[in-house]
Amino acid sequence: MKLVSYKIKGTPGPLRMGFSLDDKGKIVDLQETWRQMQLNRQDRDSVDVTETSFPSNPDQFFAGGNRLIKQAMDVMAFAAANNIDDNGYNRDDVYLATPVSSPSKIICVGKNYAAHAAEMQSDVPDYPVLFAKFANALVGPEDMIEKPDFVRKLDYEAELTVVIGKEASNIKREEALDYIAGYTIGNDSSARDLQKRTPQWLQGKTLDRSTPIGPWVVTADEVGDPGQLSINAYVNGEVRQAATTEQLIFDVPFLIEFISSLITLKPGDLIMTGTPDGVGMGMDPQQFLKDGDHVTVEIDKIGQMANKVKELKS
């Protein structure tokens, strides 16, 4: 199931939860379809407390975790059986936002592919290299990557991104996948000149509106093994990164075990699992993003996300 955060173009109002049955199909409102399903079941008591029991707000929905994900799957099955998608919105008529706009935590993993560590002239780490982003950095699949004009070395980083579905503390790797709501695509845009001027990376990693996430969250059941996915990045149509998540040094179950031993993960939290080799800083000569560049990231079983770089004049 592909879960989206959307609004009708040109209209005011808050973002709402929706879903798409395929990459190019109509966007169907999730809460409204849930309401129709409850009416079909003659469950009027549930309909009367719709916003409480099945929120339309994307952040509230993902904070509900796997309980609401399971209900959403029931809604999708109802929609498919009753041709509800015929009443959805055409893809061109909706704006897709980042699926989770205000996670309590965005935990990123550095140097998690050996070839990327090598191109950055770094040793393979013994433990996961963790750093944080904040929600101010997030933009959606249709938004610009904003580049302040004082940033000279803006880089791209294609990353499989995990959305947590259940509170997780001291979780064993054998159980880790049960705590995942789904997966999405991340582009960990990095201002290398800011990142490298101090030992701590934060200032180069969480600039305002610099990190696209999207275009949707694909539920864990559709992705299956997160360690068998191709991951690619293109800049202006040129292949820059091409790898598979099988090459992760620390795979997704290990990361959840490791992180949850340090930090309690909450539903809606994001884990950006690291980027493969092929980043601009690792090229010879180095190639960084410029105003007007197009960055496309593709991950198997999730889809594609494309964003344009926009330089901001100070």
Rank of each mutant, 00 (worst) to 15 (best):
D43E: 06
M76W: 10
Q31S: 06
C108T: 04
V47T: 07
Q31I: 11
Q60H: 02
D59L: 03
I84N: 03
M37D: 08
G88T: 12
L68T: 13
P55E: 02
G88C: 08
G88A: 07
K105F: 03
N57Y: 04
S56Y: 06
V94T: 04
Q36I: 09
D59P: 05
P103N: 10
I27N: 05
V94W: 08
C108W: 06
V94K: 04
A72H: 14
Q71G: 05
N66D: 11
Q31D: 10
G65P: 12
D86N: 13
T50P: 09
D29S: 11
Q71E: 15
V109W: 01
D48N: 11
A80C: 01
E32F: 11
N82P: 12
P99G: 00
V49H: 10
V100D: 05
F62S: 04
L96F: 12
A81T: 09
G110E: 14
D85N: 13
Q71V: 14
Y95W: 14
S102G: 01
L30Y: 13
A81W: 03
V109D: 06
T98Y: 04
G25W: 07
K105W: 07
K70P: 07
M37S: 01
N82C: 01
N90A: 09
K105H: 08
C108A: 08
E51N: 05
G110F: 15
S104E: 13
V75R: 03
R41V: 10
Q31L: 07
L30N: 05
K111T: 04
D74Q: 14
E32A: 15
V49S: 09
R44C: 00
I69F: 04
T50K: 00
A72M: 05
R44A: 12
Q60D: 13
K105M: 11
L39Q: 15
W34Q: 00
G65C: 06
K26Y: 11
F61Q: 02
P55H: 02
V49P: 09
R67Q: 11
Y89G: 00
N83F: 14
S101R: 03
R44S: 11
V49N: 15
L30A: 10
R67E: 13
W34S: 03
P55K: 00
G64M: 06
V75H: 02
Q38R: 09
D86L: 12
K111N: 03
Q38K: 07
K26D: 04
G88V: 08
Y95S: 12
A80S: 13
R41A: 14
N66R: 02
W34T: 06
G88I: 12
I69G: 00
M37R: 07
I107P: 06
N57H: 08
S101Q: 05
L96V: 02
F61D: 01
V49F: 09
V94A: 02
D29H: 03
F54T: 03
S56R: 07
D93V: 09
I84C: 00
A97F: 11
R67K: 07
L39F: 15
G25Y: 02
L68P: 15
S102E: 09
A81N: 04
S56L: 03
T52V: 12
P103G: 01
S102N: 07
S101A: 13
N83T: 05
N66E: 13
E51H: 12
D43R: 03
L68W: 12
D85W: 14
Q36K: 14
L96Q: 01
L96S: 03
G88L: 04
N112C: 15
D92Y: 12
R41H: 14
D74E: 13
A97L: 08
S102Q: 14
V49A: 06
G64A: 05
